[in-house]
Each structure stands twice: as structure tokens, then as C-alpha cells.
Simulated assay, not measured.
Amino acid sequence: MLITKIYKTDEITEAADELKKGELIAFPTETVYGLGADATNEQAVKRVYMAKGRPSDNPLIVTVASFEMMEKYVDNISQNAQKLIEHFWPGSLTLIFKIKPGSLSRAVTGGLETAAFRMPDNAVTRKLINLAGVPIVGPSANSSGKPSPTTAQHVFHDLEGRIAGIVDDGATTVGVESTILDMSSEVPTILRPGAVLGEEIEQLLGEKIIFDRHKVGEKETPKAPGMKYKHYAPDAQVLIVKQKEWNVAYDWAKKSNKKIGIMALNTDLEKNLPDNCIPYDLGSDIHTASQRLFAGLRYFDNEQPVKWILAAGFAEKGLGAAYMNRLRKSAGDRFFEK
């Protein structure tokens, strides 16, 4: 078993050296922690799948430190794509492009002719990539199917002994993964919602884009990460509670002889919480709820095991679309019903 080292931000030269050797290093971003390996080293990339227990047909995001680093792999970068990069990079927007034939291995692309690229809004990780001298793959640094990690401690819990190290830069600030926008199709298409909103993209480009909401089947190769039907799932069954149904949900919970987790805004937690319910505060609005969603799911996995988790639902607009995308997958699309 590997000894997994926690690197401080002033120790990233050592972490970069491990990447050069083909080792796996988890890294911080503004969204969630990623699991890094040299994207040009096929054997290292394959070890990412093994460490996560992830199906190898899933493509991996290629994380870069500069536009020039991405250009080595992508031929035709449209004017619209350049606009998006200039406006949103570094940041929470992942872009899918057709790549130069043979420039990246099938282990990175999932056998597709496209690849996803992102430049994270985290100076520590961009420096790590520059020191390594290569782009790194960057799926979320968790066991496959489990809630994504938003702290180094979450990564350590899932992957201790499976990876060489974790660069610790504190808790992430966004809390849900990046928006994925497919620029290889005729019309730009959002495959996964995130903190960069579709409305912002449309406003910048001055044209409508497509929102792909279809559920990826078990035998279908997804074009981007996070598109499978059930994902981000804790051990407990999650039920999504609509805003006006908390009183009814609490009445239901009172009748149970099981411990029940409650992930709700602080205003809803201030109501008459049943004795058998364990609260997790999602803060005051959709922004804090998005930051804390994965941490809350992990809290009930790792610290307060429960049978059920009642989690706050939001309107599926703006950042609520990204939040509900993750919550629906963690719940298997199950809502609390009266």
C-alpha cells in the first residue's frame, strides 16, 4: 500500500516530481478536488481509473495551466471558443474540442475523437501543472459514484493508500463541478451544468445554445464526466424535499424509528426538528447550499450514518440547475412524496 502524503501549498515542487514519475496526485480547484496524473502517460492515466474504481469508457477532463498548453492537442479553436476562454478562463468552464488524431490516448478520451479541457481558477494547481510540464487529467478525486470531495480530508478518506499524495489548499469555494460545454458540435451544447451559467454563455456569444439533459444509459459512452444516471451517491437513500414540504417531511420523519439526516437551509432547520433527525446546515441560499452539498452527503456517510437523507430542493434555474443536477443523481431522481 502506498503512503499518501498531504502536501502543503509550498511543497508542490515535490508533488510535481511525483507526477513526472507517473504517480497520482490529488489537487485543489475552485470546484472540487481533482485526481491528477500526467495526461501524456497512458499507464499513469489507467491507474486513475483503478484508484477511483471508475469505468474506463468515461472520458477524463484534461486540466491545463495555459491556453498554449491546450493548443498542442486542439487544431481548430473557433472565435466563439476563444471568446469563452478569454472571458471564463481560468474558471469553472470545461470545453470539449475535437483533438488532433493520436494526440491523446484512448485512456484519456474514452475512445472518442474529442477531449474536454479546463484551466482551473486555482493558482496553486496551475503552478503544479507548470512545474510538471504536462497537462494532467482531472476527474474528481473520490471513489467512483460517491460524492465529490471538497476538502483534502475527503480525498484522503476515499483514496488513502491508492495515490501518492494530495495538495491541500483548504476547502473549495464553488463546491460543484465545472460546467461542461461541447464545442465540437454544430451548436454549443451544455452537457453538465455548473457555476458558469448557460445564460452567461448565451449572452457572451450572442446566440442560443443547447442544454443536453438526456440520461446516459449504462452501455452508452458519455461524452463528458458526470452524465451517468446515478452518481454522487452516499450510502443512505437521498430524498429531495421541495421548499414548501418541510413540515410534512418532518411529520413523516417523526414516525420513523430510524435516524434521518436533514440537509436544509438554516431557516428550515430552525423549525421543529424531530429528535431522531440529525441536521446539516446548507447555509442561507443556493450559493452556500452548492458549496456544502457534497460535504453534507459525505458527513452522513462518514460521521453520522443514517438510513435516509432529506435534502433541500431548489428551482432548477441559474446555479440551482447545477445543484439539482448533482442532487437528482445522488438521489436517483427520488423526491419526498407526501
Results as ranks from 00 to 15, higher is better:
residue 239 L to A: 12
residue 226 G to I: 05
residue 241 V to A: 14
residue 244 K to I: 02
residue 254 K to A: 10
residue 242 K to H: 12
residue 234 P to E: 15
residue 240 I to C: 01
residue 237 Q to E: 15
residue 235 D to L: 11
residue 235 D to A: 11
residue 258 K to N: 07
residue 249 A to V: 01
residue 232 Y to E: 09
residue 226 G to L: 06
residue 242 K to P: 01
residue 249 A to F: 07
residue 249 A to N: 05
residue 229 Y to F: 11
residue 244 K to G: 00
residue 252 W to I: 02
residue 233 A to W: 07
residue 259 K to Q: 12
residue 227 M to E: 08
residue 239 L to S: 10
residue 250 Y to S: 09
residue 249 A to Q: 12
residue 231 H to Y: 07
residue 259 K to S: 08
residue 233 A to C: 11
residue 243 Q to D: 15
residue 236 A to N: 04
residue 250 Y to P: 05
residue 243 Q to L: 03
residue 259 K to I: 04
residue 250 Y to W: 11
residue 232 Y to W: 13
residue 225 P to E: 05
residue 251 D to P: 00
residue 249 A to H: 06
residue 255 K to Q: 13
residue 229 Y to A: 13
residue 256 S to T: 02
residue 257 N to D: 12
residue 235 D to R: 15
residue 248 V to Q: 13
residue 249 A to I: 01
residue 243 Q to G: 06
residue 244 K to T: 08
residue 224 A to D: 03
residue 224 A to G: 01
residue 229 Y to V: 08
residue 254 K to Q: 07
residue 228 K to L: 15
residue 227 M to V: 00
residue 230 K to C: 08
residue 259 K to V: 03
residue 230 K to W: 03
residue 239 L to K: 10
residue 255 K to F: 06
residue 249 A to K: 07
residue 235 D to M: 09
residue 251 D to L: 06
residue 255 K to S: 08
residue 252 W to K: 05
residue 226 G to H: 04
residue 255 K to H: 07
residue 246 W to A: 13
residue 244 K to D: 15
residue 242 K to F: 09
residue 232 Y to P: 05
residue 256 S to G: 00
residue 239 L to N: 05
residue 253 A to L: 06
residue 238 V to G: 14
residue 233 A to I: 02
residue 246 W to N: 10
residue 244 K to L: 02
residue 256 S to P: 00
residue 227 M to A: 12
residue 225 P to N: 04
residue 232 Y to G: 11
residue 252 W to A: 06
residue 247 N to W: 03
residue 246 W to I: 05
residue 254 K to N: 00
residue 232 Y to T: 07
residue 233 A to S: 15
residue 242 K to D: 14
residue 241 V to K: 12
residue 226 G to Y: 06
residue 225 P to R: 08
residue 236 A to S: 14
residue 233 A to D: 02
residue 238 V to Y: 12
residue 228 K to P: 00
residue 254 K to E: 14
residue 258 K to V: 04
residue 228 K to M: 14
residue 255 K to I: 01
residue 259 K to M: 09
residue 234 P to I: 08
residue 245 E to A: 14
residue 248 V to H: 14
residue 236 A to G: 07
residue 240 I to Q: 13
residue 242 K to R: 13
residue 244 K to Q: 13
residue 243 Q to W: 10
residue 253 A to G: 07
residue 246 W to Y: 14
residue 240 I to R: 10
residue 237 Q to G: 04
